[in-house]
Amino acid sequence: MSFRAAVITFPGSNCDRDMAVAIEQVSGTAPLRVWHADAALPDRLDFIALPGGFSYGDYLRSGAMAANSPIMRDVKAAAERGVPVLGVCNGFQILTEASLLPGALMRNAGQNFICRTVALTVENTQSLFTAGYETGQVIHIPVAHHDGNYFADDATLDRIEGDGRVAFRYAENCNGSRRDIAGVLNAGGNVLGMMPHPERAVDAAHGGTDGLPLFESVVKALAKA
């Protein structure tokens, strides 16, 4: 299988290389690197990743300016066609600002930047991102964010929970996120946003490999498609 992925880089991204290395490690193929100002995505993409960082210096709101970058028009169109899109940390913020995912990411409840490994519980194993995990499994993934406090109104939360769209929860809520939500899927199940960094947990030398099944799940799902 030829796996054709792209990692989008925005001004202020700082985890794009980490994401590219993780994708290549699992798929065997280096992803294409796409600049935010490019007018269009490369043809025939299987997977798109929006990495962590501080796009545009987090001015206005985290992810708000990046959500209006030229390349995001094509990212939205690709997501609507069913192309898998993963947004991590700042990428999650961009996906909510672009209305590809519900809710918003606010300042952490303690107003502090959090940088450590946290425990997550896997809530949904039916998506192409999470099929490699077991329901209720506790995994350990690093976080590094200041604006990771997931917020949505009660009606939205009830809807996404009822639809099984919560992918991950914090085992111990580190940032004040409502209902301990750490990762959310779109209605089609092909877009995942999460604050923790699975790309930083794919090599035992870096402290753990609990992020590896996420990337393996995507590659395996697309190989069967």
Rank of each mutant, 00 (worst) to 15 (best):
F168R: 01
R44F: 02
N175P: 13
H140W: 03
V118P: 04
L95N: 02
I139V: 15
L120F: 08
R116Q: 13
L32I: 14
L100E: 12
G148E: 07
G103F: 09
F151C: 01
E123A: 10
P198W: 05
Q25Y: 06
A109V: 14
R159N: 07
G103C: 13
K76I: 15
A39F: 06
R169N: 12
L214E: 06
L32S: 08
N90W: 09
P11Q: 10
C115D: 14
G57W: 11
F129D: 00
M106Q: 15
T117V: 15
G12K: 06
P70Q: 14
E97S: 03
L50C: 04
A205Y: 05
C174F: 08
N14M: 11
G183Q: 10
Q111D: 15
T209R: 03
A5T: 10
F10H: 09
Y56N: 10
E161T: 09
D43L: 09
E172L: 07
A201W: 02
K76A: 12
R107H: 08
M195F: 04
K224A: 15
T125K: 02
V7Q: 00
L32Y: 02
P142K: 00
N175T: 13
S127H: 01
G189L: 04
L45I: 12
L185T: 11
F129R: 06
T9L: 08
R17P: 00
A5D: 05
T121K: 08
G211K: 01
K220F: 01
E24N: 07
D38P: 00
G28E: 04
P42D: 10
D147V: 05
G28I: 10
V202R: 02
L192K: 00
G12M: 13
F113E: 05
Y59T: 10
V191M: 01
A131D: 02
H146P: 00
D46T: 13
R116K: 15
D38H: 12
F168E: 03
G12L: 10
A201L: 04
R179F: 07
F3M: 13
M1F: 00
R107Q: 14
R178V: 14
A104F: 13
N108W: 13
Q137D: 07
N173A: 07
R107D: 11
N149V: 08
E216S: 05
T29C: 05
G57T: 11
G189F: 09
D38E: 15
I160S: 02
N112C: 12
L212V: 05
L157H: 01
S127A: 08
A39W: 06
N190F: 11
G162N: 00
F92D: 04
F151W: 10
R73Y: 08
A78P: 09
L100N: 03
N173S: 10
F215N: 05
H146Q: 12
N112V: 12
A6G: 05
V138H: 06
G103Q: 09
C15M: 11
M194I: 11
R81G: 03
L95V: 03
A152Y: 06
A78R: 08
T29I: 06
G12T: 14
V166R: 02
Q25F: 06
A64K: 11
G148D: 04
A30M: 07
D58P: 12
Q126A: 12
D203A: 03
G183F: 07
